[in-house]
Nucleic acid binder design. Structure first.
Length: 195
DNA sequence: CGATTTTGACCGGCGC
DNA sequence: GCGCCGGTCAAAATCG
């Protein structure tokens, strides 16, 4: 399984007109969906094009791996400044501040049972808000508390018909300022909003 | 009034 | 088997 590194955020990528929350959020969403869809390529096609401007993040990111079942991804700490990843947060802070992502696809490796083809991606993001708007519409279908963490895990499914992408959101048990969002599957449609 | 959330029940896998 | 555990279902409640 290949992992590849992506550095999605660059502060002024959407900083352009940032008074408008919507635009900021849209661009962000766009990027995420990008990850979600550009999935089967065997090459890291997207690692530098977007946010081409500058990845000033200086990321010497200590990439540490968060392990999920068979996928792992993570992000790291960085030093970029705030950008909004979240939907409506009142202006200013409250938003997250950084992230780098490693993506992994696993088309080929089998799972013990069913779902051979599910790909998973996880993001670890620093954010006070649990839910971030990634451009898709989600319907929550479950909530569970997991062993060893005080936080609960939430389960969402894409509400678009025929699309069975799922995501789960939980807080990092070691550092509650991070939120871990795991996507599973590939959307068969574009993001709802027009851009 | 349709869509979404809430929440406990349910279920399948796994280790013992 | 049994019980824990993570994941999902579904009915009722709530939302917009």
């Amino acid at each position: 399984m290949d992992y590849y590194y992506v550095n999605p955020i660059s502060p002024n990528y959407y900083g352009a007109h940032d008074d408008d929350d919507d635009s900021a959020m849209n661009s962000m969403s766009f990027m995420i969906s990008d990850f979600l869809m550009a999935d089967d390529d065997d090459h890291h096609s997207n690692q530098d094009h977007q946010c081409g401007s500058q990845s000033q993040s200086t990321t010497e990111s200590s990439v540490k791996m968060a392990a999920f079942s068979d996928v792992t991804t993570t992000t790291t700490t960085t030093t970029t400044q705030a950008h909004r990843f979240n939907n409506n947060n009142n202006n200013g802070e409250a938003s997250s501040n950084n992230n780098n992502v490693i993506k992994c696809k696993n088309g080929s490796n089998k799972r013990s049972k069913g779902e051979v083809n599910s790909s998973r991606v996880a993001f670890r993001t620093k954010s006070e808000l649990d839910v971030m708007d990634d451009g898709y519409k989600w319907r929550k279908y479950g909530k569970k508390s997991v062993k060893n963490t005080p936080y609960l895990r939430n389960y969402y499914k894409c509400s678009s018909e025929g699309c069975s992408v799922k995501k789960r959101v939980e807080r990092d048990r070691d550092d509650s300022s991070y939120v871990i969002t795991t996507y599973e599957g590939i959307h068969n449609h574009a993001t709802p909003f027009t851009y």
